[in-house]
């Protein structure tokens, strides 16, 4: 989940979040129905092209490649059929990749702005924003507590009995402190979950959205043509 600073301002990050969510749904749905390799390759190729907008660390890329190889190898061993194993891998990638690719190019503020326009209950918008924003932070806290235990000579990996006192209790205390601070922060800024929120940057439909929409429709049409049209 990206924090505001992690989202690189790329052309894709300026596209309407609804369009990206819709496209993501469309791609995942379509990938479930494809039975031929050519449309699957076109779908995945497009997703990989979108991935170039992300700045991924080589370590993460290497990890993803390793996982893909392991999945393909184990599927081929189980099915005794390499072409089907490769097709399964392509389908898996087509299902798994669109959402993170499009989510990682959406700044949280834009996502919240778009959620506000569909008039979701404000508590839901607030909860989503908090989960989106603070989940990575809490993971970092968890990592810090884990490392603090290692410094004291306790390797929690091999001592699950210590997880409660050594990991969960400090984490809960940290979370309660965070929750209090965030509440005070929101209150001092006059935030109320029941009042309508003002918006300094309302979401508008721009020419880039139209262009993206056109390209996406052409892409999906090509995939459908390759699958069912020939």
């Amino acid at each position: 989940m990206p924090t505001p600073r992690q989202v690189r301002r790329s052309p894709l990050s300026r596209i309407n979040p609804f369009l990206k969510i819709g496209l993501s749904f469309g791609l995942i749905g379509l990938s479930l129905f494809l039975r031929h390799i050519a449309p699957m390759l076109v779908l995945l190729g497009g997703v990989l092209l979108l991935m170039t907008q992300l700045k991924l660390r080589p370590l993460i890329l290497g990890y993803i490649l390793l996982m893909v190889c392991i999945f393909t190898g184990s599927t081929a061993l189980l099915l005794q059929n390499w072409p089907e194993a490769i097709f399964s891998t392509l389908r898996l990638l087509a299902i798994v990749l669109p959402t993170p690719v499009l989510a990682l190019t959406t700044p949280p503020a834009d996502l919240i702005r778009s959620l506000q326009t569909v008039r979701l209950p404000s508590f839901l918008t607030l909860s989503l924003m908090l989960i989106w924003r603070f989940f990575p932070l809490m993971q970092q806290e968890l990592q810090r507590i884990w490392e603090a235990n290692q410094l004291r000579g306790i390797d929690l990996k091999w001592r699950p009995g210590k997880w409660f006192s050594g990991l969960m209790v400090p984490l809960v205390f940290q979370m309660v402190v965070y929750a209090d601070e965030v509440t005070v922060g929101l209150q001092t800024r006059g935030y109320s979950p029941t009042e309508p929120r003002s918006n300094s940057k309302p979401l508008h439909w721009r020419w880039a959205d139209t262009l993206f929409c056109g390209v996406a429709i052409a892409w999906l049409t090509l995939i459908c043509y390759l699958e069912w049209g020939r």
Partner: peptide, 25 residues
């Protein structure tokens, strides 16, 4: 009118984060 306060919403969101973090753990 909501029976919940801002503090409740924030606390609930953090508990959700805790549950998700423990899934990964």
């Amino acid at each position: 009118n909501s029976p919940w306060s801002l503090r409740d919403y924030v606390f609930a969101a953090f508990m959700t984060i805790g549950m998700v973090a423990s899934i990964f753990l």
